[in-house]
Amino acid sequence: MSETITRKLMLYFPKCECEKPIIYHLVKDYDLIVNIFRAKVTPEEEGYLVLDVTGTEEQIQASIDFVKTFNVTVNFSGKGVTRDNDRCTHCGYCVPYCPTDALIITNGATREVIYNEDECIECLACVRVCPFGACTAAF
């Protein structure tokens, strides 16, 4: 049995695919553990979904192949929330608002604010509070 891993994915569903129970199949047919961070259906009926999937490399790969047959775009870096490094001033204002340690100061001497995308649970607090507009949400 191969090792289980966790991958963060962002899925984009075009208009016609929104009503299909794709996530149900990921759990039932591919035996994946699914953790949804954030989902949205726009007024144009397009769908966005950011989630973690846990399973073996093979299971995840097979599930992605399955998802792609529905015309769904899969973004592996799971970038629902991005921080523009040129716009970030490393002020640290967002740090107490980040519920995980996705935005964190690890080096007390330089006080650089690191963004660990993998830790982000897409709460959007930083998007709301950053005075410099450095953090943005894809949807």
Binding site: T89, H90, C91, G92, Y93, C94, V95, P96, Y97, I105, G108, T110, R111, E112, V113, P131
Partner: peptide, 25 residues
């Protein structure tokens, strides 16, 4: 303040910064 947490009236309080030490440096 730079430790990220201070104690006020026996209660732990989180600290944020409006200015950037990183840029100042």
């Amino acid at each position: 303040l730079r430790s990220g947490e201070i104690e006020i009236k026996g209660k732990k309080v989180q600290v944020g910064s409006m200015s950037s030490y990183y840029k100042a440096l």
